[in-house]
Amino acid sequence: MFGDNLDRIVKGIEKNYEADEIFFTKPGRRFPNRSAIKSVLKDIRRVMFPGYFGAEMLSPSTSPEYFIGETLIQIERVLREQIILALTYTSDERDVNAGTSNYLCGGCTPESICERTSEICTVFFDELPNIQRVLLTDVQALYDGDPAAGSKEEVIFSYPGLYAIFVYRVAHVLYEQDVPIIPRIMTELAHSGTGIDIGAGAKIGEYFFIDHGTGVVIGETTEIGDHVKIYQGVTLGALSTRGGQRLAGVKRHPTIEDNVTIYSNASVLGGETIIGEGSVIAGSTFVTSSVPPHSRVSVKAQEITVRQPGEKD
């Protein structure tokens, strides 16, 4: 009976709480909060695309400067707290497993963590106007590339590809500042909501187009140029990750040059694989070596057999 075994079960689970991965029993140790990070993304999107995802700026009496300033102050307060938590967590992990972290906090004291957080926030907020500028090129690419798009407003309101790109562009700035945990939380929030998985470390140019999007995977060390189009089910991945943590920081995902189109369910794999400018990768192809510029990569034609009812094989 469950009641007879309860004490034994409780003691077994309590024993497992001694593992480093279980945080709630460790005084002073807290993870960043997913809900807070989600709210940061929501408010940044309101600033990037005012009037689309909130009631702001819908009245002539509303000042854009006031709305932008007040919202950024709110974002900075929440993001600062989450970055401090992330840096403190990683500082604690360095004490347990020295050398696993790649960020610098000047000795990892509370004072140095606060100082490093201020530096990160300065860089991040200075980059917001450029993030917005590049996002507008992505909106243009999606509108120009999809004949089903009724307007740019429709793209902004409803396209999952744009949302995933937006989250990536925000997370990438934090990733470049060696902020732990938070960039991954951001991109996984987008992944869970759109089915599009973009590593925060990927380098992606302007006018980026993801159509439909479900099942797209873009690995952490992928490099993508300008005016690139990607369709559903595309994987830009690694040839093998059996090396595990030994591959951290190693380029293991492909480079996609400008004006490349990759159709649905294609896989392009490997850190040394380069898809040359202007190339087209057909659907369901499996590419593990470089192709020169303006190439056309396709699967050899397969035989299709149609059997009518009553016909024998």
Rank of each mutant, 00 (worst) to 15 (best):
F2D: 11
G12W: 09
G12S: 11
I13P: 00
N16T: 09
N16H: 13
E21Q: 09
T25Y: 00
T25I: 14
G28M: 13
R29T: 15
R29Y: 13
R30P: 00
N33K: 05
R34Q: 15
L41S: 13
L41G: 15
D43I: 04
I44H: 00
F53S: 05
G54N: 12
G54E: 10
L58D: 12
T62N: 12
Y66N: 06
I68G: 04
L72K: 00
I73E: 11
I73L: 15
E76W: 03
E76M: 12
R80G: 14
A86K: 01
T88N: 05
Y89M: 08
D95A: 11
V96I: 15
V96H: 14
A98G: 14
S101N: 10
N102I: 10
Y103F: 15
T109D: 03
T109N: 04
I113L: 10
E115I: 10
S118K: 13
S118A: 15
E119Q: 14
E119S: 10
F124E: 08
F125D: 04
I131N: 08
V134F: 02
L135P: 05
L135I: 01
L136P: 07
L136K: 03
D144M: 06
D144W: 02
A148T: 14
S151N: 08
S151H: 11
E153D: 15
L162G: 12
L162D: 07
A164M: 09
V167S: 00
Y168D: 00
Y168N: 13
R169M: 06
A171P: 03
R184K: 15
R184W: 13
I185Q: 00
I185L: 07
H191E: 04
S192P: 02
T194Q: 03
T194S: 02
G201K: 12
F208H: 06
D211C: 05
T222S: 07
E223T: 12
I224G: 01
K229W: 05
K229R: 10
G233P: 07
T235N: 04
L236A: 03
L236I: 05
G237K: 08
G237C: 08
L239C: 06
I256K: 06
V260W: 09
T261S: 11
T261Y: 09
V268R: 05
G270V: 13
I275R: 04
S279L: 04
V280W: 02
I281Y: 08
F286A: 11
F286C: 08
S295F: 08
R296F: 15
V299Q: 11
V306L: 12
R307I: 15
E311A: 15
E311Y: 15
K312G: 10
